[in-house]
Simulated assay, not measured.
Amino acid sequence: MNKTVRIPHLGGIEASYKIFGAYKQYKPTLILINSFTTSSDLYEAQFNNKELTEVMNLIAIEPLGHGKTKLRAGARVESDSQNFTYWDTAIMNVQVMDALGIKKAFVLGTSQGGWITVRMALIAPDRIAGIIPLGTSMDYENERTIKLGCWDGIREVTSLVEATTSASAVDSYEPSTEYCEFLIDIGFGKDCPSSTREQWTKAIKANYQGDAGRKRIREAAINLRERDGLHGRLTNVKCPVLWLHGDKDVVYSVANAKEEIELFDNSVEKNLVVVPGGHHFLSWTHQQEVDKAVLDFVNKNSKGTGNAQAMREAVGMVDI
């Protein structure tokens, strides 16, 4: 079950997150960030994996415009102002860390979650122990990425922006079945199980109900379509980077990932792992491969070479 915490950014956000069990300060922490118009449920398999939960705290934070995270004008009133960017979500996530007493964390993100992990590493470098982008891109939507086999994001997302644009309230709004099918096809694969298709069609429709839902999905779509690129800033990322990418990803290509991983030229460690048969929402379609890579990455980078105090502080554990 999701919990919420009120944080101050943008005049007040009710940030929604899911945590496995009680937070244990002696364990490293992994923050999980979901993909476009999904929710923290994208990581339900990871929350059910004892190999992960025994080693680390798992906390899934839902970005602005997603899940139960909401901008709040007051204690209970949702704000009419729904303007936000991916930088705002990155700041929100760091403030959630503050509110929960997390000194340092690893961050994993799928698609849009991937570039949020980088933004978190840029705005709070001393708080991020390592980043794990999945099926993502570090660029804005442009001809370069299209030529490398990525989707035409501006074209694909504009139809959603137009479908949710209205000068007056649309209280009956819910996402169309066509949109849900489109997202499921590109995210989970056209050959995904019918149970996956049914689960996410139901979830997407339920999450974006009414005029408030229309406004949230519209801003989330604008955020995706019109985001800024990160190429010039990737050299400023110093923490370890593990990029996982499926070779059946139809949104962002392996060719693009191979170019962009090299731009992390000042990271203490950078690796691109291509997962055979993997789709865009890789942690769902290829859980075992992702979970093993995550476990190895966190275990490796949670270990220091100094004394026990330094080792524990390095991964945000409680002071000794």
Rank of each mutant, 00 (worst) to 15 (best):
D247K: 09
M97T: 02
K270V: 03
L108D: 06
H9R: 07
E156M: 14
K258Y: 00
D185T: 11
A221R: 02
W284Y: 14
H280Y: 06
D265A: 09
V94I: 15
M317T: 01
T158K: 14
E78W: 11
V241T: 13
S159Q: 15
A167N: 10
T53H: 08
I131Y: 04
N266Q: 15
R214G: 02
N256K: 03
I131R: 04
I91S: 03
K18G: 07
R216W: 00
I204Y: 00
N271Y: 01
F47D: 11
D319S: 12
S283I: 13
N48Y: 10
K68G: 08
Q82Y: 12
N48M: 14
G210P: 05
I222S: 02
G189K: 08
E14K: 09
C150P: 05
G113P: 05
I19S: 12
M1D: 09
P276R: 07
P28D: 05
E174C: 08
I7K: 04
K303I: 15
D191F: 00
E62D: 13
N223K: 09
H286A: 15
I186C: 03
A169C: 10
G135C: 05
D296L: 12
I61M: 11
A105T: 10
D211T: 14
F264W: 08
D291G: 14
A129D: 09
T37S: 13
A203F: 01
A169Y: 08
L134N: 06
V96D: 04
E269G: 12
N93G: 03
T85N: 09
L282G: 11
T53K: 12
A314Y: 07
L234N: 12
V290F: 10
H9G: 00
I13S: 06
I33N: 05
E178F: 07
I320H: 07
G101V: 08
N301S: 09
S39I: 09
T235R: 15
G277F: 12
P193I: 02
T4E: 01
S111E: 02
A203Q: 14
K202P: 00
K68D: 07
V241I: 15
P175I: 11
T53P: 07
A90S: 13
I33K: 04
G135Y: 02
A121L: 12
D152I: 00
H280K: 03
E226N: 14
A206S: 10
V107W: 09
S166H: 06
E262H: 06
